[in-house]
Structure formats: structure tokens, C-alpha cells
Amino acid sequence: MKTLGIDIGSLNIKAVVLEDEGISGTGVVPLDDDIEASARMAMEKALDQSELNLDGLPVLATGVGAKQISFTSQQKTITTCLARGIHHLYPSVRMVIDMGAESMTVVKLNERGRLADWANHDKCASGTGLFLQQMAKLMGITLDEMAQLSFQAHSRADITSTCAVFAESEVISHVHRDPPTPMEDIAAGIYFSVVSRTISLCKRVGIEKDIAVTGGVALNDGLVSILEHELGFEVLKPEAPQIVAALGAAIIARENVEKGNQK
């Protein structure tokens, strides 16, 4: 059976084609003003890789604006899709930390890979991908450079973990003080503020191993390294952490066909 999952993120749209043998195509494209057009581009990219077309293919969408996609009437929330997607990749995972461009969500799974609980930060951008992007911009470096710098830190700058706007002022102050705080320590401080916020979110639902990280921010090795240090153990990171929710969407589309309730 072949199905397609689409995840409408706030920066990128991700598409996954799932076949019986596993993932056969993926597409990740930046979201522009037209959600429908971007979603179609991501879908076409994934279908091209799979050498398939959309005809009769069951499609399920998740994420912000999933209901706006015209080529599917099936939607599920991001938490359910994350749970399904990660369980497919790592059945031992009991907790997913999904770090997206504008959101951070912690999802807890039961032993069947079903959603058991979740928590998210929805009142502040602190700790999200856009927050990290903004911090790197303030430091005049790229996100990759920021990650590399953090590995060389000897200490870490104190950065607030409760407000993105205050954190921005603090970073500016570290950069411009005399003498300036070493860039390595600022980078480590920023990551630590994100990680402390992440761990407090994990504690709200109860930390349980194995833990996996997903979302575009999970590609940031510097941040994941500090997260592992603070948790005290290693986390699992999929090869393409940003497509896990889309994968989950494709899995649910397949389940719906099997249950015979595809719309």
C-alpha cells in the first residue's frame, strides 16, 4: 500500500511517501504565502522521488493550516502524528522532543506507540527554531557556526529561558560588553537556556527513556549535545528529524485505509 503524509510547519512543509517497504520519497520545501502551492511542491517532490503520482493515493495532513490543503480531507494533530512516526522508526521511544520553527512540543508515548500525554510551550517563542535563528543573527554568525562554537565553550553566558525578547537583549549586552563575552560561551548559554526550558517541559509529563528528538532544530548538534549532557543520557535522533510528523501522517493514512474509513 502507498500513502502520503504532509506536515505543514511554520517554516517548511514536509511530505513523505510511505510504501510497504518503507519511505520511498520525501520532500521538504519552504513555506511561502500560499500554503496550498507549497504543499503541492513538497508533495510533488516526494512523489517524483517515489516515481508515483497522486491519483488515488490516500493523503493525510497535519500541522498548522492542514485543513487548508485541498487535496486531502484527512487531518490529524501534530502530536498524534509525531507519536506514530517515531514509533515506526524507534519502537523503544517513550518520549519525543519536537523542536520546530515556532513551537516546542514534548510527546509521551505508551508501549503501543500511542499518544499518552503531551505538553507544549505556546505563550513564548523562546526555545524555538526562529528564536535560535534570531540569536545567531544577533551574533553575526550562521546556525552551523553557532553549533560549532558551542562545542568550544569553556563556560556559558547566563541567558534567560523565559522570554525571547529579554533573551535577545541579554545576547546583545553580552556581545557588546567590554570585554565582550566569548562567542563560544554565548552560544553555549543560548543553547542551555533552550535546553533548560525543554527539560522543564519534559518534566511536566514525566521524563521517560528512550527519548528521541525531532523537528528542524534537532539537526543542531550543538543544542542536542547540551540536551544530552543535561539529561544525563543520549537521545535518539532520526536521520531526517524534520519529517517524522509527515511520516506519522502517512502511517495514519495507511491505518485509515486498513480500517476502511478513508474519506
Partner: peptide, 16 residues
Amino acid sequence: EVRDKLDQFFEMLEDR
């Protein structure tokens, strides 16, 4: 926002 949270919660209840 409330709708989104309730949707997630009801999906979780349905999925148990």
C-alpha cells in the same frame, strides 16, 4: 488555540 488543544486531547482519548 483551545480548539487545537481539544483536538489533540480527543485524538488521544480516541487512540487509547
